[in-house]
Design a binder for these strands. Structure first.
Lengths: 336, 336
DNA sequence: GTGAAAGCGCTAACAG
DNA sequence: CTGTTAGCGCTTTCAC
C-alpha cells in the first residue's frame, strides 16, 4: 500500500504539496500538479481515508438505525438516505435493530466512539443507553418517519400522518362504511397515535365514535395483521372496513378475510399504509397511502448533515405530504 | 471529547497503561486497573475508534454490495451478514448498487481507500473498475448468493441452485405437467444458468425438451414476472406450469394469470424461488424454494473475516442445501 | 508492571 | 507556490 510519502518521493516534492494537489489542485503550479498526478498514477496511490478521517476528527459516516430492514418501506427510505449520503461524501452504516434496545444501544454507541458522525433513527425510541445520555447529547441525530416519544430535542422528518389517516377515513366513510375497524402499530409509537387521532377525528366529524373494541394493536407484520383481522371480524356485528396502519398488516388482513370465506372488498374493505411495491400485486390491489419514502430519507440525511456541520436548521420539523392511492381493496358498503 | 491523555493525567499513569488497561486488563496491576477505570468513568472517556483503527491500519468495516435492497431476500442475507459482523467486531457499510456498475465501482472503491477491509458482493459482476484491477487484487472479497461470471479467484457461498431447480421440475412433473415455462433472471448471472441447467436436466431425464419458446428472461421484479407470464401464456398451446426464478416474479405471474381470467393452480401452476415472507400471503400461497438466507450471509461474513485475517479457507466454495416448500400455487395438471 | 517515545498517513499552520 | 513541522489519538516496541 503506497502512501503519500512515496508519491512525494517519486515526484520530488513534499508531502504537503501532494496533499494539496489532491484536495485543492489549483493552488499548485501546473507543472508540479502534472508531476504529482503522474507519480500518483505510477505508484497506484490511493489516499488512506482512514488517516484522512482520523486527522480531521470525523468518520464521514452516518449510522442508520432501522427497526426492520426486511420492511420494504424502510428499504426505500434507506435508498434515499444512501443516495443523499453519497452526494455529500458520506457513507452509510447499517444498524438493523429489530426494535430491540440492546441493538439500538450497540449501534448508537458507535457514534460515541467516533465511528459515525451522526445518527438517523427510524424508530420511536431514544436509542442511547441511559448511562450514555450526557455524552450522547452532543451527537447529531435526526428522527425520520417516526418521532422519539416525549423528546423534542431532535429534528424530525415525517409524513403528515394525521392528515393521511383522515383521508383514509373520509374515503371509507364516503363509500358508506360506518362500522370501521383499525389495526394499529405499536401504540408506543407517536405516529401510530397521530394516525389514530386523525382517523378518529374524521369519524367524529361525521358523528361516529371509534369504539375501543374496533381498535386493535398489531406489530406492523403480516402475521399480526392476520391475527388482528381475525379478532376484529369475530365481533358481531363485524366491521365492514378495516384500516391497517401499514401494508404488511393489510396483506395479512386480506389473507384472513379470504380464509374466513369472505371477499375483499365485497364483505370487507381493507386499506393499508405505505404503498410498498407489493401492494400493487395483492388480490385485490391495495388502497393505501403513498409515502414519499426516498424523499423522507434524503431530507433526513440532509438535515443530519446540517447538524454535523453545525449549521442552523430551517425547521426542526419537516412534514411531507401523503398521497391517497385508490385501488380495489376498498369498495362501497354492502348491506349484509 | 476527552482522550486517552486526559485519562492518563487523571489517574496518574501513562497513556500506555491506559491503553493496556482497556484492551488487555489482566496485564496491569489490580490497583492501577481500578484507578484507570475510575478515571475513565469520571472523564466519560470513550476510545476514539477512528484513531484505533487508523493506528491498526484497519477499518473493521465491511462493504456489502447489494443489487437491490428492496428485495426481501437480500434483506435477510444482510441480516445474517450484520449479525456475524457484530459478533466479530465489524460494522457493515451498505452499498445499494441497483445493479449498476457505476455504483459498484464507487462502493467497491471504498475498500481501496481503507474505508472497508473487505467486500461482500451479492451480484454476479466484478465490482471494481478495470483500471483498479491490480490494486483490487489484494482486497478480500467473497461472493454470496451469486458468482462472479468467469472469475474463480473469489470464494463463493451459494445455494445448491442446480439441485433446487431440479426439485422444482420434478415436483411439477410429478403433478403431471408437461408443458412447462420458465421465467429466468438475467441470463448473465451464473446462478440463473445453474437453475436453468438443473431444470432442463430434470425434464430431459423424463424425455422432455425445454424449448426456447418456453424460456423467457425476466429481471427479478414483479412487473417483469407479469410481463413474461403474459408472453408465455399467449403461446398456443400455453404452458400449464411456470417456474419463476424468484418469488417477486412469481407474484407478478400469479397476478397476470388472474388478469387473463384463469386460476392458479387450476389453469396454471406457478412456482417461485427464495421463500420471501410475502410468498406465504399470496393467493394462493406460493410453492417455492426456501433459501437459508441468514446462514448464507453469516457464512459469507465468516469467510470474509478469514480472508481479512489472512487465514486459510477450508473451502473456496460453500454450497448450502435448499428446501422445497410446497404450498397451493402448484397443483395437478388438468386436462383442458 | 509501567513509562517513554516512535509512528500509523494525512492535514494544516507557518515560513519562506 | 512550496517545504517544514507539529500534531490528530492510539498502539506498540523497547527499556527499566
Amino acid at each position: 500500500m503506497s502512501n503519500i510519502r512515496e508519491v512525494a518521493r517519486r515526484s520530488g516534492v513534499s508531502v504537503a504539496t501532494v496533499s494539496r494537489t489532491l484536495k485543492d489542485p489549483q493552488v499548485v503550479s501546473p507543472q508540479t500538479r502534472a508531476r504529482v498526478l503522474k507519480a500518483v498514477d505510477e505508484a497506484g496511490y490511493r489516499p488512506n481515508l482512514l488517516a484522512r478521517n482520523f486527522s480531521s476528527g470525523k468518520s464521514f459516516a452516518v449510522m442508520v438505525l432501522v427497526p426492520n430492514i426486511a420492511n420494504p418501506f424502510f428499504s426505500r427510505v434507506i435508498r434515499g438516505i444512501e443516495k443523499a449520503a453519497q452526494d455529500q461524501g458520506y457513507s452509510v452504516l447499517l444498524g438493523d435493530t429489530k426494535g430491540q434496545s440492546v441493538n439500538e444501544q450497540f449501534y448508537a454507541g458507535m457514534a460515541l466512539t467516533n465511528q459515525a458522525d451522526g445518527l438517523i433513527q427510524l424508530d420511536s425510541s431514544y436509542p442511547f443507553a441511559d448511562k450514555d445520555a450526557t455524552l450522547a447529547a452532543s451527537v447529531p441525530m435526526v428522527n425520520a418517519c417516526e418521532r422519539i416519544a416525549e423528546d423534542d430535542r431532535y429534528p424530525v422528518v415525517e409524513l403528515d400522518n394525521h392528515g393521511a389517516a383522515q383521508a383514509i377515513a373520509q374515503h371509507l366513510l364516503a363509500l358508506g362504511h360506518r362500522r370501521i375497524g383499525v389495526i394499529t402499530g405499536p401504540v408506543a409509537s407517536p405516529i401510530v397515535r397521530d394516525r389514530l387521532a386523525g382517523f378518529r377525528e374524521a369519524l367524529e366529524k361525521r358523528g361516529l365514535q371509534l369504539g375501543s373494541e374496533r381498535v386493535i394493536e398489531g406489530e406492523f407484520t403480516m402475521p399480526s395483521g392476520q391475527r388482528c383481522a381475525k379478532a376484529l371480524l369475530s365481533d358481531t356485528p363485524a366491521p365492514t372496513a378495516i384500516f391497517c396502519m401499514n401494508d404488511e398488516m393489510a396483506i395479512g388482513a386480506i389473507h384472513q378475510v379470504k380464509r374466513m370465506g369472505m371477499t375483499v372488498p365485497g364483505d370487507v374493505s381493507i386499506a393499508g399504509f405505505d404503498n410498498i411495491e407489493f401492494s400493487q400485486f395483492t388480490d385485490p390491489p391495495l388502497t393505501t397511502i403513498d409515502q414519499p419514502a426516498e424523499v423522507l430519507g434524503r431530507y433526513a440525511m440532509e438535515t443530519l448533515r446540517l447538524m454535523i456541520d453545525g449549521k442552523p436548521l430551517k425547521s426542526s420539523r419537516t412534514i411531507l405530504p401523503f398521497n391517497l392511492v385508490l385501488r380495489e381493496s376498498t369498495g362501497p358498503y354492502q348491506d349484509a
